[in-house]
């Protein structure tokens, strides 16, 4: 099973990952090879086996909804590539 060029480009688009043509070719080879090796998973009989997303049996950890200090805006924005006042600045979403 070999991934097509179109499939690689489709996955890259889902991941919002820009790739050069050379990267597309290389990833096509490498991902195909990796997935081919991982086909062995299909040999395992998993009928009736539930999936495990987490190894510790805890769910819905709750805490009281109390107001507490959070980071001040200056610290939140300190690493911003581009800021505008107290906002993160990005390019227009809708042209």
């Amino acid at each position: 099973m070999k991934l097509t060029r179109e499939e690689v480009l489709h996955i890259a688009r889902l991941a919002r990952l820009g790739l050069t043509d050379a990267e597309v070719d290389r990833l096509r080879e490498q991902l195909s090879n990796i997935l081919e090796n991982f086909e062995i998973l299909q040999q395992v009989d998993t009928a009736g086996v539930p999936p495990t997303s987490h190894t510790v049996a805890i769910k819905n950890v709750m805490r009281p909804d109390e107001v507490a200090d959070s980071l001040p805006p200056e610290q939140v924005l300190a690493n911003a590539p581009q800021r505008d006042g107290d906002y993160f600045r990005i390019q227009a979403v809708l042209e």
């Binding site: 919002r16 990952l17 991902l31 979403v93």
Partner: peptide, 27 residues
């Protein structure tokens, strides 16, 4: 555009193994 900025940010910010795993996981 905003989308192009995001794709280029990730293209130039991540190295080959990280890209490989993002692709594998997204797939």
């Amino acid at each position: 555009s905003m989308w192009e900025a995001m794709e280029k940010t990730r293209q130039h910010g991540f190295g080959p193994e990280v890209k490989r795993r993002i692709m594998l996981g997204t797939y």
